[in-house]
Design a protein around this nucleic acid. Structure first.
Lengths: 343, 343
DNA sequence: TGCATTTCCGGTAACGTTCCCGGACTTGCC
DNA sequence: GGCAAGTCCGGGAACGTTACCGGAAATGCA
């Protein structure tokens, strides 16, 4: 197995010094055109490819970037990864991907690996405070996802939950749903509070008492949504039941629960999801939901990283707008009940 | 921003030479226990972390591995990536992830990036013959997926399509489906031929003329499956229609087509998928399908890579078994029609 | 005590690249 | 023709690490 050719091989073949060869190949510095061409040919002939490790050591620019997300197999995060990867590849760099599984120790291990490989920057969905001193080591970083809000000092990208929730509520209202039930995530999550706050604001603007909205807590899983929906149906046995779920997995679980209970969606039950996971397109009826711009988030996070590295001005936190995907899980109640509830 | 501490800082603080410090930290070579401990403390004190770039340059072991797949945002490949990543992380190494989008040029670019970063090895789902000379540069590699079969010289991991198809056909037979219609992928794909061959073998063993099976070609997409199913229903307007689809996306498309045509699944139509994508769990009825061991494939590919690098004996190509996931898209025809078709 | 052996450590070179510096040669101008 | 400026190139150092070699000290044994 032949040794990989180095710049010295190129230089020898071209009959110049390695410095000249390097200059010719990097484009920087002054080199005679003829010489440059000669070196180019020599490089081509021996099949030279620059050793990024050596470049990284010498220049401090490894051409490597890191991405630490909870789980690359999760469709949302896979989309984020894809967006980040695309942007990084455009830059001619490469992306190291790690899954933390929402585990503090794993995250710490991955962050250490990132430092040791001397990545030029990292995109992180933080699970713990590990990231706090990560930046101290001089690794530029951009945070991503709602948990990033705990670190206001570090630039971050997230979806605009307030805008998204309003989008959903407006859509519900436009179709005659006035006070939807809510299936939310665990109380410990920041996203839950933000979701709920926006709902409250929306209600108050419409003279609805937020306390009248039925709320069930779940854990962001299919099973959790399924159980929460059963509780909801036990609470309201008659009339059209409208449910706004804080994520799609729970919405799909709720959909199944409704079907099992013999309550037709969208005739007797309306369900609105949140996330935009691909699986929502395959349910029956298709899940109407609010899509987070996952890929764009990844792309923008990478862009923010480059901005930071190149010293361009930074936004603290960027909220990307979500969009509504209309499928079939929402009834249009305006036809049957043009009701006017007195405020 | 403080300079990252190097081994020289550690050595100075411990009052030893950098060679000794290196020996103490790597564990290799003879060092007095007291000295080693002293160095350890010094390293701890200054917050030393080994520079992997430098190690890689000196030792040729970068601690980096590469993964080139068609699309990280595709749930199947995301699972593969997760499996590979887990195994690589266990080794204390890191994984570079690239998406080729089934594009030759992109693949070539990514392979070049892998060589330049001096990855220790690569896992590749080959789209073109680029990989052929990739190995010549001394980068150990393992291929993954069905397209790997074009390169018999390179070790590879795939799912056992023959076993999977038989699993499906046996399951169909056990539920009274004798001669299913087929929705297959494009004729250019190797996997299609393998799929079809196994079906033929299965038929011949049962005195069924394979030519009697209705076959429709599609393109592995939801829309493709939808259209293929419409053609199938046009061909067979009466009786129970059983369809075996070569992937889940097409199966879900077929399911929708059936519903749109007012043909109830599983009462009037039975659909069997192939892949095991998560979305299949959310359709109604849930998609009965054959699951490829995606994560295990990724993990095994990484393992095969390590075996190859460490000079352990290699299998040429490894086929991992698939398993059947029973949900609800298959009718049990044995009750209603205990029919005995004369062979 | 003297010699051989072991244990431990420091010096140096090397990995492949880029950057800086200075020298040689060419060009321009008076 | 002489000097200044410009152009182009080679030599050497440096990035941080590890491998190798040799020497000093400690130990073992007679």
């Amino acid at each position: 197995m032949a040794r990989r050719p180095t710049i010295i091989d190129v230089a020898q073949r071209a009959g110049v010094s390695k410095s000249t060869a390097a200059r010719a190949l990097t484009g920087a510095g002054e080199v005679n055109d003829a010489t440059r061409e000669k070196v180019r040919r020599a490089a081509e002939a021996v099949g030279y490819e620059r050793n990024h490790l050596a470049v990284g050591m010498r220049s401090g620019r490894s051409g490597l970037f890191g991405l630490v997300i909870p789980d690359i197999a999760n469709p949302f995060w896979a989309e984020v990864a894809r967006g980040a990867q695309d942007r990084v590849a455009e830059q001619g760099a490469s992306l190291l991907v790690f899954s933390s599984d929402w585990d503090h120790d794993r995250e710490a291990i991955h962050l250490r690996a990132l430092r040791q490989t001397h990545v030029e920057g990292a995109i992180i969905n933080p699970v713990s405070d590990n990231v706090d001193d990560f930046g101290r080591f001089g690794v530029p970083s951009v945070l991503i996802g709602s948990s990033a809000e705990r670190f206001p000092d570090i630039p971050s990208i997230g979806s605009d939950i307030a805008q998204a929730v309003r989008l959903g509520l407006d859509h519900l209202e436009a179709h005659g749903h006035r006070a939807p039930a809510l299936i939310l995530g665990p109380r410990s999550r920041l996203a839950r509070a933000r979701f709920l706050r926006t709902v409250h604001e929306h209600c108050l603007e419409r003279d609805i008492d937020p306390a009248t909205l039925p709320v069930e807590d779940a854990d962001y899983t299919f099973e959790g949504g399924h159980a929460a929906m059963q509780r909801l149906m036990a609470r309201q046995k008659v009339g059209h039941l409208t449910v706004f779920c804080a994520n799609d997995m729970m919405a799909l679980g709720a959909l199944l629960a409704a079907r099992e209970a013999g309550r037709d969606c969208p005739r007797e039950v309306s369900i609105l999801g949140f996330d935009g996971i691909p699986g929502g397109a395959f349910s029956w009826p298709g899940l109407t939901t609010i899509e987070k711009p996952a890929r764009e988030m990844g792309r923008r996070a990478a862009q923010a990283l480059f901005d930071q590295i190149d010293g361009r001005p930074q936004d603290g936190r960027t909220y990307l707008p979500c969009r509504l995907i209309e499928r079939g899980s929402l009834a249009d109640l305006r036809a049957h009940e043009p009701l006017r509830v007195a405020g």
